[in-house]
């Protein structure tokens, strides 16, 4: 009676809703592999519950039945070993474990092998945010992906180890400095899902989250188009600032006058600079344009010629926006 009751509770706990929504144990299923993982989870859960109930029930029955009490001061004679029983129990355990391993292995093959036609997005983790770079160079703080298309993430970290984790997709992979790790998924349902950092990384670890926004396959292309061309919807200064942030300028150029690898952009526009060869130039549109496309032609004295060229990587309108942004850093707008 108790057993059937428990069985009832158990089946309710491991019930999987038809629509892939959240269960008592699992978050909603948002990717193609989630169903497989959940199936294995429920399979192991079933085995575990059966064994757990068995162990505890046997234990309770023994405690009640064989309790030391008046008339039962000593144990009844019973054998203290039975090799056949031990071997049987061992065989059952081995069998179950092998089955579990096999299913884990089978679904893992799917998880670890990205399809050849996957859409590739670069992921960078750093304390304490994510950035996602699309094939066209556009960078976003959230991960936008199309539904029903495999997406492969190529990930690295700029500081310590992070871990990219989307519970709804059942996907997790460490993001390691000095290495590239890969993972992939195929989202099934448009919607928004949480991204967590699962590897402890310091103060902001628990706030190192972002969203995966799954677009229907028709919407993704237009979204990327629109997002990449943010210059059309922003003022040149704002657009330039975004470019400064996402295209790598800020790694070497500060906007507050602080020293970095390259000259600061703060109050740079219109300033007279001495070059490495001793000549003096004025920083204007032409010089900025030249320095973006041919960075090491005219290097300001005191700096190494180390900047890579942006020829073919920044369009004219983008350079113009960047110039507008630099121009705005005149110390008067209180932007910093």
């Amino acid at each position: 009676m108790i057993l059937t009751g428990l069985f009832d509770v158990m089946t309710r706990l491991i019930r999987v809703p038809e629509d892939g929504g959240a269960t008592f144990w699992m978050p909603p299923q948002g990717s193609t592999i989630a169903g497989e993982v959940d199936w294995l989870f429920n399979f192991i859960l079933g085995i575990s519950v059966v064994f757990f109930v068995l162990i505890v029930a046997v234990m309770m029955v023994f405690v009640v039945k064989y309790r030391r009490r008046e008339g039962r001061e000593t144990a009844s004679p019973s054998p203290s070993n039975n090799t056949l029983l031990e071997i049987t129990w061992m065989a059952i355990s081995i069998m179950l474990v092998v089955i579990i391993f096999f299913f884990g292995f089978k679904s893992y093959l799917n998880i670890s092998t990205p399809p050849a036609n996957a859409y590739e997005i670069q992921v960078a983790g750093q304390k304490w945010d994510w950035s996602f770079t699309y094939p066209n160079g556009y960078v976003d703080q959230d991960l936008h992906v199309p539904a029903d298309r495999p997406v492969e993430l190529v990930m690295t970290s700029v500081d310590v180890i992070h871990s990219f984790y989307v519970p709804a997709f059942r996907v997790k992979m460490d993001v390691v400095p000095g290495r590239f790790t890969k993972t992939w998924f195929e989202a099934t349902m448009p919607g928004e899902y949480d991204i967590f950092c699962a590897e402890y990384c310091g103060t902001g670890h628990s706030d190192m989250s972002a969203m995966v926004i799954v677009h229907t396959s028709g919407e993704f292309g237009p979204w990327l188009e629109k997002a990449s061309n943010f210059l059309l919807t922003m003022t040149p200064e704002e657009g330039g600032r975004k470019l400064y942030e996402i295209r790598g300028c800020q790694q070497c150029h500060s906007v507050d006058g602080g020293p970095r690898t390259g000259p600061t952009f703060f109050k740079m526009f219109g300033k007279e600079e001495t070059l490495a060869d001793g000549s003096i130039i004025t920083v204007d549109e032409a010089y900025i344009r030249e320095s973006v496309l041919e960075p090491n032609a005219k290097v300001v004295a005191g700096f190494e010629p180390v900047m890579p060229t942006y020829q073919g990587r920044l369009r004219d309108d983008e350079i113009a926006a960047l110039t507008a942004y630099m121009r705005s850093l005149d110390g008067k707008m209180g932007e910093e």
Binding site: S48, F52, V56, K172, A198
Partner: peptide, 25 residues
């Protein structure tokens, strides 16, 4: 016996590859 059984059985979830990926950390 009660707690160790739970602890041991939940180890199966973490030993299996695909569920481990989800449950790790």
């Amino acid at each position: 016996l009660f707690l160790f059984s739970i602890g041991g059985l939940t180890g199966l979830f973490l030993g299996a590859l695909s569920t481990n990926i989800h449950l790790h950390d």
